[in-house]
Design a protein around this nucleic acid. Structure first.
Lengths: 210, 210
DNA sequence: CCTGCGGTCAATCTTTTGGTTGACCTAGCC
DNA sequence: GGCTAGGTCAACCAAAAGATTGACCGCAGG
């Protein structure tokens, strides 16, 4: 950790938002933005070169590696910088995945600017920063452990989410309608619901679908 | 319209993004940011006071008035400033509504910064700015005219999207199951689909649901 | 080798949905 | 007053979806 100022790398794909974050963090004398990246890949080489104290990253980074990937990669080594996730939208699943990947904190972009700056400083000190509302949801979520569907089941569910009927799904996937039903029964059981519509709703709130 | 520099008001609820946009626009000598607002209501009083050449607004503005509301309100008078919508996500419906409300342009936040600045300048000259991909979708969309569901129908559909069955919907809305079915038949007809799941899928892509 | 899991399929039965028709009431409009 | 649109409900029928049971195959792992 630096002596006086905290060095920060900002990872965010949208140029305008990236400028905003850099501007916000840069105007605080405790912080120093030493680099910025628009993709996950660039972020990793940048972190390697700059060895910042904190990495502030968005979750969605366009194509390629996402924020969770960046987090795990960055945190993989000892002496690694702290990672603070700063994102717009949030599903429970995103938050859990980010925290599991080693993020020190998770903030929404509509947070108060002062809170964001404060979170970066706290993260640099090794503290964990989760907004109370989010923290609550994370623990609530850890309890009901993530349903994990097989690849095929997700495929079926995605088709259902598009509004297809069982027969149509069977045709597009080249399997029998009976098989589609079998998969759906499994999906329903795993998601603890009893209709296709409810399955889609649940999958959405769990972040299993786009 | 000003003599030399174009005056701009920025409307965006997320402080960080707002800072980014202001910073981006402010560093171009052709532009001058004369005000910024975090809500639609503030935006209107600000526009009234500053009489800018261009208003750059997000579509989603947290609670209260949204970007479309701001657009129509701002454009309601003669000699009104041009409105440029700058947003993150986009459904076809959002774009169409914004354009219909009188927006001169519609850009995504992941656009190149130079393009954004250029769009503001173009908007000030009274030109229309739509990214080609979006423009294509708008026209494609104008063709199949927007289905309009009654308030009750939307209510029913929203319940369906949450995964509720007809019986549950009937109970929560204090009506009979027969009525729920009737509404759904109307919804299906209007959306040109033949199942609840397909209705939800269609409504989503049309932006009729959150 | 055997076990478990994922994927495939079939037959059967119950429940839910969707389609159709027709009806009544209310509110707003010409 | 007649007309239309939205909301309410009922009865009935057809189709789709869901539940249950049982079976076969291939493959990874103990």
């Amino acid at each position: 950790m630096s002596t006086s100022t905290v060095s920060v790398v900002v990872v965010e794909d949208h140029p305008v938002t990236r400028m905003g974050i850099v501007a916000l963090l840069g105007q605080d004398e405790r912080l120093s933005v030493v680099g910025q990246a628009g993709t996950g890949e660039d972020a990793l080489t940048l972190v390697e070169a700059e060895r910042p104290d904190v990495v502030v990253t968005d979750l969605r980074l366009g194509d390629g590696m996402d924020g969770v990937g960046v987090t795990s990669a960055v945190r993989a080594r000892r002496g690694a910088p702290a990672v603070l996730v700063l994102t717009t939208y949030d599903t429970d699943r995103d938050i859990v995945r980010a925290v599991e990947a080693g993020a020190a904190g998770y903030l929404l972009k509509d947070a108060d600017p002062a809170d964001i700056v404060g979170a970066v400083v706290a993260a640099a000190r090794g503290e964990s920063v989760l907004s109370p509302a989010l923290a609550q949801r994370v623990v609530a979520r850890m309890g009901r452990q993530q349903a994990d569907l097989s690849a095929r089941e997700v495929e079926i569910l995605a088709a259902v989410a598009q509004g297809l009927g069982n027969r149509e799904i069977a045709r597009t996937l080249f399997i029998s309608e009976a098989t589609v039903k079998t998969h759906l029964v499994h999906v329903f059981t795993k998601l603890d619901v009893d209709s296709r519509t409810a399955a889609v709703a649940r999958a959405r709130e769990d972040g299993l679908l786009g």
